[in-house]
């Protein structure tokens, strides 16, 4: 049981929580995540630790509402308790001064990218953030990203805001323009796949943070497995970050769709109840 000490809306669909978790705050490094469960019948879902305050014994989570479990979490209020919270999990991000780093994110990947952008900037990198969304209303965390980036490029599929085009279009503008030392990408698997194909063409080392389906998050089940460089890896313990050029995104895409039917049913069930 972990108490929510503050709740702030970044947008209608994105909530920032500060949660009491002194041990996790102390042990975490950038890139680590936690598993969160809301309610006795709740699902365990992975969330990146966006920030931590060792002194106050708190961690920060930035949650985007996508389905049942993230909605339940977002519905919690100040003073409520998160039923279960465990971590920090996964391997930490390798943060150092690489030179110029492009952070390309979109959709579900925007929230977990924020701490990476912040950490990369702090380490002295020139950080260029490419932030993509389908349409203007779905552009989130723009302000927070801007504060921590040297430059930010906003892309929308329909051109309703920023530049019209996909994340890859924004990224290619940068790649054509200047020398990039590292690309970080988080987002829907299909997006990361095309980012990876693009940076491969430009020979830019690329790290993708994979958001596979997880159950325990501790290496116990294998639900999160992906093929990297021809070998099966568990994203929760070996990752979540991998060399994007080695990741079999087609397999990952296929595995992510595995429970789509059940997820949709669950969403319908819970919305018909409320």
């Amino acid at each position: 049981m972990n108490k929510i000490l503050s709740k702030e809306y970044f947008s209608e669909k994105v909530v920032k929580f500060v949660v009491e978790a002194p041990q996790i705050a102390k042990a975490r490094r950038a890139g680590h995540f936690v598993m969160v469960r809301v309610g006795k019948k709740g699902e365990r879902i992975p969330l990146t630790i966006a920030d931590a305050d060792v002194e106050r014994g708190t961690i920060t989570l930035v949650v985007q509402r996508t389905g049942v479990s993230s909605s339940k979490l977002c519905a919690l209020e100040l003073g409520d308790y998160i039923t279960d919270l465990v971590g920090p999990l996964g391997q930490a991000t390798r943060v150092e001064n690489f030179g110029t780093v492009v952070c390309a994110c979109g959709g579900v990947g925007t929230a977990p990218m924020l701490p990476i952008v912040t950490a990369m900037k702090k380490a002295g990198n020139k950080v260029i953030t490419v932030l993509a969304a389908r349409t203007k209303d779905l552009v989130i965390l723009e302000e927070q990203m801007r504060e921590n980036s040297d430059e930010i490029i906003v892309m929308t599929d329909d051109g309703s805001y920023g530049t019209k085009g996909l994340v890859t279009d924004g990224l290619e503008t940068v790649l054509k323009r200047e020398k990039v030392d590292l690309c970080m990408t988080i987002g829907p698997a299909i997006m990361m796949k095309f980012v990876s194909l693009l940076t491969k063409k430009y020979n830019v080392p690329t790290i993708a943070s994979l958001n596979t389906i997880m159950v325990d998050g501790t290496g116990m089940c294998g639900a999160c497995r992906v093929t990297v460089g021809g070998k099966t890896k568990f994203v929760c313990v070996d990752g979540p970050e991998f060399d994007a050029h080695q990741v079999d995104f087609d397999e990952m895409l296929m595995r992510l769709g595995g429970y789509r039917e059940q997820e949709r049913e669950a969403m319908e069930r819970s919305s018909s109840k409320s």
């Binding site: 699902e43 294998g222 639900a223 595995g258 429970y259």
Partner: peptide, 30 residues
């Protein structure tokens, strides 16, 4: 072996036993 529908017994049993996934009111799918 990584096709959808193939899983470890740990995953299967954890979903059903720990997460009670087979019950209608559980948020975890199986």
């Amino acid at each position: 072996e990584n096709l959808v529908g193939i899983m470890s017994s740990n995953e299967y049993l954890t979903r059903v036993n720990l997460m009670d996934a087979a019950s209608d009111d559980s948020d975890t799918p199986v």
